[in-house]
Design a protein around this nucleic acid. Structure first.
Length: 274
DNA sequence: CCGGATGTTCACCT
DNA sequence: GAGGTGAACATCCG
């Protein structure tokens, strides 16, 4: 599921966990703990502590920890990083009214949640819990993720910011947009949608845009992400219904082209995306 | 049965 | 170093 819009939703879900004392770390799946994090280490940091802020950079959810010792928020406390891969979901307070409401909002989700797919959970002293459920195990949990790994968040990126991140590379434009170290949060669906809206061929060089095209891309990228957050997910784009063989461009009715760009299946309109 | 799927990382090429 | 490819992860869907 997760591209930026989904993780932004998970961020709001995580806000319902703020301020609650963590009683127990449950790492069901050691493989899910990344970058050397261990159950023991996580328990040492988190048990007895609480989250005081939920942030997001790109597709990475960041939970700032208040250990109650020394370091007052904001700043210099530990940070729990959650990433969700393609099939991860964040749930808070399973079975409660809160979660039922959340799951209603998540009705678009085609992903099932099965108990056997719980990879990581925190139990709170109040009896509630937060858990990451992930069928394919492509997500993960880490402590103090390195912020330099990700470029600036795609949401709200300025024109000059976009130009800087596209740089002088001759890499295909779409591949550059999806490079998380350059621009954080754009995945396969958002990239196709934004390029389709902006009328740009995903294969053209990232460095080949003139100022007008750059401006157009920046505007459409921002609007696309805004729209998809409002519509409830990255697969609610206007291009989405046409993403199949024999699909037709919703703008001009032309047959869409399907190919691989940046290693991912890509759909584009050969008429108006130039 | 086979291929592909919203993501990331890594080994291995060119 | 820059890019590209394919594999791996585990499950569902057409």
């Amino acid at each position: 599921m997760p591209e930026l819009p989904e993780v932004e939703r998970y961020r709001t879900v995580a806000e319902s966990a703020l301020g609650r004392v963590i009683a127990e770390v449950r790492a069901f799946d050691a493989w899910y703990l990344k970058r050397g994090a261990s159950q023991r280490e996580l328990a040492g940091v988190l048990e007895g502590a609480r989250f005081w802020r939920a942030r997001r950079t790109g597709k990475l959810l960041l939970l700032d920890v208040d250990t109650g010792k020394g370091a007052r928020p904001p700043s210099d406390g530990p940070v729990l990083g959650l990433h969700f891969g393609m099939s991860g979901t964040l749930l808070v307070d399973a079975g409660s009214a809160t979660e039922r409401a959340t799951e209603d909002q998540l009705a678009y989700s085609s992903h099932k949640v099965l108990p056997g797919w719980d990879r990581f959970a925190l139990r709170f002293e109040d009896g509630g819990e937060m858990r990451v459920n992930d069928a394919r195990r492509l997500g993960g949990v880490e402590l103090d993720p390195d912020p330099r790994r990700l470029g600036p968040d795609a949401l709200g990126l300025s024109l000059s910011g976009l130009r800087a991140q596209l740089g002088s590379s001759s890499t295909p434009l779409k591949a550059r947009l999806m490079d998380q170290s350059r621009l954080a949060g754009v995945g396969n669906l958002i990239a196709d949608e934004a390029l389709w809206r902006a009328g740009l061929d995903p294969r053209r060089s990232a460095n080949s845009l003139d100022l007008a095209q750059m401006r157009k891309l920046q505007r459409h990228l921002r609007k696309t992400i805004d729209d998809l957050i409002l519509r409830g997910g990255s697969h609610h784009g206007d291009l989405m219904p046409a993403r199949h063989l024999d699909g037709r461009c919703p703008k001009d009715g032309a047959r869409l082209t399907r190919g691989k760009v940046g290693g991912r299946t890509t759909y584009w309109c050969s008429i108006h995306q130039i």
